[in-house]
Design a protein around this nucleic acid. Structure first.
Length: 636
RNA sequence: GCCCAGUUAGCUCAGUGGUAGAGCACUCCCUUGGUAAGGGAGAGGUCCCGGGUUCGAGUCCCGGACUGGGCUCCA
């Protein structure tokens, strides 16, 4: 009889006969371990507890203590949710139910229209099924038999998937009278699935294809224990409190209105923040050798035809007409920048030419995609186009990446993910040119020492791109920066320079943005800081509170002195007690609150209260200005 | 654009076919204050828009707009 050789985590070796299961081994160690075991890992592969081990190798038993066991619990929870839904709502057809970050979902097709009101009943049914500790068992079956077993009528989605597979056998898992096609592994019984919460219901196209049927997707999450589940729910509530739309209103940063969807009205406070951000970007790019320009918002159809936008991007453009000529509002700044490049004869000596613009763009985005100020129709990009030679791409991409990381770090974003997107189906330019440019960008990444994830087919219609995703303090991902290599547009719009050889050449154009859109980036900042902006960005850096109306003039004089020193300050002129005004200013999450009363007015000082630190005592105006300058310089 | 759900005072939200409500904010008056809510009075509504059912619609039905959660798309 065959024996398997297992290496346990402590390094010891164990010989077992073929056919032994993980559960057998757990049991031989201790019955308590056997009870707690979720699954095992054999030779790096997760494996059902009750399934005969497939071979020799490193062996581990997964319990709730192992992070990877949570995925298995969630995967099994998806099955349990499906079981509950099918029992409660007969006629429901199942599509897919994968594990995702922080939970899982199941896509279903049902005559019942699910709403959050159904969640309690589904959760109750799941709890009931979990309480029954139904054994979860795997069965292998010939794929063609499985197609019969499921049947096109009953489960068209499962059948469609199986028809596309090429494996000879597939597997399914049974719990009670429910079974579901699945690769596994799963927990041994439903008793592991007691801490589940349904979160939301949403539409989702079958296989993500907008031409296929719309299914109902139920999002949910599951944990090993009640405490972890509750902590997650609390975290979701915290994230909700950071919603930029809620904070934006509370801090009077901006508003949106129904009759002009996707357009932001910046209020004085929000605009101060916007300008602080813009000033920062300006300083950074000027130091990095960029020149700033500004180009018209509306351009003739003729230009968009030449650039290719009319063909490839028309659906997203607002088009208008005047005196029988057709115009479109610019959705991008690149054609405009080439118009500036094309004025006069350019020399290779001018390259690389880094042309920046806070480019105001308008894109007619589908209504369903709009979201607060994160996704709007009118926005400003911290855009720039670098005109360079093919040889300069590597250095320019490397310099750009350095600048980007430096700037993200100033906001406390230290983790950046880079994606490499290659040629899409809808594109301009020859395959040879795409080959060349994709290689140039790949080489540039290597030169810059970037680790990239490949994103095939996701490039812009004119060229391949890198996309930079930052992680905020809640661990959420935001794609912001991008750099795109474009040999096509300069060619189409006739950009040329005179080379060292005296001949005319077409430059390469690098489209690049670091923050992406200022609107979106501010949305991210609001949520990242929960409205408590660092002093250097804060719309109001300090507010001055007179102890009573008698000291209003002294407060105003202080404000005027601080404004002269370049600080953004306000005076709280409300006829209220000090405690009330402090409470309100704290609610606005301002970095500094300055109290001016009899003592301060007489000595030319302010009593400083710093956000998070409390009362710092009295400082002269000069001392305070210096203190703030230090905080600003440190980007605190 | 697609699926589902929402839309009531400036904001957050109650209101199951019969006289539109609360808290906060706002205005005025009193109070003139020392580190997270002083007191009183008042004003504020096309119940998203348009149709329909009904003696009667914020409430039920249909259509539309917008918002939200997602999907597709995307900065």
């Amino acid at each position: 009889m065959d024996t398997l050789k297992l290496t346990l985590p402590d390094g010891s070796e164990k010989q077992v006969t073929a056919g032994t299961t993980g559960l057998d081994i757990a049991m031989s160690i201790s019955p308590r371990l056997a009870d707690a075991a979720v699954a095992v890992v054999i030779d790096g592969k997760q494996w059902d507890l009750k399934r005969a081990l497939p071979g020799s190798g490193a062996f581990r038993i997964l319990t709730a203590k192992d992070a990877e066991s949570l995925e298995i619990v969630r995967h099994s929870s998806a099955h349990l949710m499906a079981q509950a839904i099918v029992q409660l709502f007969p006629g429901t057809k199942l599509a897919i139910g994968p594990v995702i970050e922080n939970g899982f979902y199941y896509d279903i097709d049902s005559p019942h229209k699910f709403t959050p009101d159904d969640f309690a009943a589904i959760e109750a049914k799941m709890t009931e099924l979990a309480g029954q500790k139904l054994s979860i068992d795997r069965t292998d079956i010939k794929r063609l038999e499985a197609i019969e077993k499921w049947g096109v009528q009953a489960e068209p989605y499962k059948v469609e998937m199986m028809q596309e597979w090429t494996d000879e056998t597939v597997s399914y898992y049974t719990q009670g009278d429910f079974f579901d096609l699945c690769r596994g592994p799963h927990v041994p019984h439903t008793g592991f699935l007691k801490f589940v919460k349904l979160l939301s219901v949403a539409g989702a196209y079958w296989r993500g294809d907008e031409k296929r049927p719309m299914l109902q997707r139920i999002y949910a999450t599951a944990f090993h224990d009640k405490k972890a589940l509750e902590a997650h729910v609390t975290a979701l509530e915290e994230a909700k409190k950071r919603d930029h739309r809620v904070i934006g209103r509370k801090l009077e940063l901006f508003h949106l209105q129904d009759d002009m969807p996707g357009m932001v009205f910046w209020h004085p406070q929000g605009w101060a923040l916007y300008r602080a951000l813009q000033t920062y970007v300006r300083e950074k790019i000027e130091a990095a050798g960029y020149v700033e320009v500004n180009t018209p918002s509306v351009a003739s159809k003729v230009l968009w035809e030449k650039s290719g936008h009319w063909d490839k991007y028309q659906d997203n453009m607002f088009v208008t007409e005047s005196e029988k000529r057709i115009y479109a509002i610019k959705p991008m700044n690149c054609p405009g920048h080439i118009q500036i490049f094309n004025q006069g004869l350019r020399s290779y000596r001018e390259l690389p030419l880094r042309m920046a613009e806070f480019g105001s763009c308008v894109r007619n985005e589908p209504s369903g995609t709009l979201h607060g100020i994160m996704r709007v129709r009118a926005f400003v990009q911290d855009d720039a186009h670098i005109f360079c030679t093919p040889e300069q791409i590597g250095q320019e991409v490397a310099d750009f990446c350095k600048l980007l990381k430096e700037m993200y770090a100033d906001f406390g974003f230290n983790e950046v993910i880079v994606k490499f997107s290659t040629r899409p189906e809808k594109r301009v330019g020859t395959d040879e040119s795409w080959d060349r440019v994709e290689k140039a960008l790949a080489d540039a990444c290597e030169f810059a020492g970037l680790v990239t994830e490949l994103n095939p087919g996701e490039g812009a219609f004119y060229g391949p791109k890198l996309e930079f995703t930052l992680k905020d303090c809640l661990g959420r991902h935001w794609q912001c920066g991008t750099i795109q290599v474009d040999p096509n547009l300069p060619e189409r719009l006739g950009a040329q320079y005179v080379g060292e050889d005296g001949a005319r050449h077409t430059p390469i154009m690098l489209h690049r943005a670091i923050l992406g859109s200022l609107e979106r980036f501010i949305g991210i900042l609001i949520e990242n800081y929960a409205g408590a902006f660092p002093v250097w960005l804060s719309p109001v850096q300090a507010t001055i509170l007179p102890v009573s109306e008698k000291f209003l003039d002294a407060a105003r004089a202080t404000a005027s002195a601080l404004r002269k020193a370049g600080l953004r300050v306000t005076v709280d002129e409300q006829n209220q007690k000090l405690g009330y005004k402090i409470r309100e200013a704290e609610g606005q999450r301002l970095p500094f609150i300055l109290v001016v009363g009899e003592k301060e007015a007489a000595s030319g000082t302010v009593s400083v209260r710093q956000r998070g630190a409390g009362d710092l005592g009295a400082k002269t105006i000069g001392e305070f200005v210096e203190f703030v300058a230090g905080e600003v310089a440190a980007k605190r």
